[in-house]
């Protein structure tokens, strides 16, 4: 996408006014995205005095303190929710990537046995969803209510991701696998030794989509997880931050040292940051692949 390295000779240089207007608009957009994140991160890292002085969110840094994080990770609701979310995300992404890669490869050779009907079954899921209530009844009749599998298996295969991956596999020249087949390699060997190493970008992108999906999953947990002790992080975020249930009251605080506790707002903002950080951490590594055109065509769907 970054094809123009320099202004082409025929294009007129922008006037200072145009240049200024452009900078102002782009600056405003950057501010709109980054400012809320900045304020939240800063407040979560501020000592009690700074939060009290500000009477709310902290905009100007005045000292740093990790008290809120120490408190949240000392055990209790948030620690448990982080463990649940990390576990579900890790196991779920592994299962999703494995099944998706296998099926995408299995469906990447037109003319193979049953290729069209099987592909049709995958594509049909785009057009019609089973509906919330039949899905709930199925999960409950499988005995998966309050099981972590209910957060993984129903959403494990995403047809969109499968099709993206398949399209990429199909763009690899057939000669590559044909020559390996002549040498006697089986499909498994071709996939793991030849095709996957050539598909690191698309695998990273699809993996990111799956991982972000599991990490952010909220409504499945509302439906399928009744036991508060098994809540993933997004539900905790909703309960204690969006709905503002007082987190420092009893649920995690050791009241004997109440005076040294970080203020509620810093705790809340720290939960927001904990929900944010894995996404922020994964994203830049994968982002460069977006621009390589791996998904550009597929985003259409």
């Amino acid at each position: 996408m970054t094809l123009t390295t320099r202004r082409p000779a025929w294009a007129e240089a922008p006037t200072p006014l145009e240049q200024g207007a452009k900078a102002a608009v782009l600056g405003a957009i950057l501010l709109a995205v980054l400012f809320p994140i900045y304020v939240v991160v800063l407040t979560s890292l501020s000592p009690a005095s700074a939060v009290n002085d500000a009477g709310g969110l902290v905009v100007v840094p005045r000292g740093f303190s990790f008290a809120a994080y120490a408190e949240l990770f000392a055990g209790g609701v948030v620690t448990r929710a982080v463990v649940v979310s990390v576990g579900v995300t890790t196991v779920g992404t592994a299962i999703s990537l494995a099944t998706t890669v296998l099926a995408a490869y299995g469906l990447s050779r037109p003319g193979s046995l049953l290729h069209r009907p099987l592909l049709f079954l995958v594509l049909l899921t785009f057009l019609f969803g089973p509906g919330m209530i039949p899905s709930y009844l199925l999960v409950s009749s499988l005995g998966m209510i309050d099981s972590y599998w209910s957060l993984i298996l129903p959403t494990a295969v995403n047809a969109f991701n499968l099709v993206v991956m398949r399209a990429f596999f199909m763009s690899i020249p057939a000669e590559v696998s044909d020559s390996a087949r002549v040498d006697g390699a089986g499909e498994w060997k071709i996939l793991t030794r030849l095709v996957l190493p050539m598909s690191k970008g698309v695998t990273a992108v699809v993996g990111l989509f799956y991982a972000v999906g599991y990490w952010n999953a909220f409504f499945n947990a509302v439906l399928y997880i009744n036991d508060n002790a098994k809540w993933p992080l997004q539900l905790v975020l909703r309960q204690y931050v969006q709905q503002g249930q007082n987190i420092s009251a009893g649920s995690l605080a050791d009241t004997s040292q109440a005076s040294s506790l970080p203020p509620g707002l810093a705790l809340q903002m720290a939960i927001v940051v904990i929900a944010l950080v894995p996404v922020l951490a994964m994203y830049p590594f994968v982002q460069r692949h977006f621009t390589k055109g791996v998904i550009i065509g597929a985003v259409k769907g």
Binding site: T100, G106, L118, V122, E187
Partner: peptide
């Protein structure tokens, strides 16, 4: 082998 690979997802 290709068919077998599609089994888990399908």
């Amino acid at each position: 082998q290709l068919l077998l690979m599609t089994v888990p997802a399908l």
